[in-house]
């Protein structure tokens, strides 16, 4: 979280809304531990990461949906255990649970 504060503060100073995604759970092997955080500005700029690059693109989509109000805040799960509805997974075979929310707290 600490490494993304400067970006978050800059975006907010520009008047942008920001979404924060954090890894809250991990099953099996995963590249980043719980607490790994990523922030997305309403213009789609990105800071930080939640995996080794496998799911960041999908997290941006989720974050923008949460900011625009088309999705509620909540946990999104990425991994092989998902059904085919999820196009992205982790190449390492693990499953990560990412909590995506607007920074309104």
């Amino acid at each position: 979280m600490k490494e993304i504060l400067n970006d978050i503060d800059r975006w907010r100073a520009e008047g942008q809304r920001v979404a924060v995604a954090r890894v809250v759970g991990l099953d099996g092997s995963g590249p980043r531990d719980p607490g790994a955080a990523m922030a997305v500005s309403e213009h789609g700029e990105v800071a930080g990461s939640v995996s080794g690059g496998c799911v960041e693109g999908a997290v941006v989509t989720e974050a923008l949906a949460v900011l625009s109000g088309t999705k509620d805040r909540g946990v999104v799960t990425f991994g092989y255990s998902d059904d085919e509805a999820f196009a992205v997974g982790l190449t390492c075979g693990g499953t990560i649970h990412v909590f995506v929310e607007p920074l309104d707290w």
Binding site: K2, L5, R22, V24, R73, G74, V75, F99, E101, W105
Partner: peptide, 21 residues
């Protein structure tokens, strides 16, 4: 975090009051 002080953040991630901190 900027002052390097220890702190813990609790977030409801599922159930009643999701997102509460």
């Amino acid at each position: 975090l900027r002052a390097d002080q220890p702190i813990a953040l609790a977030t409801v991630v599922a159930g009643e009051g999701i997102g509460a901190k």
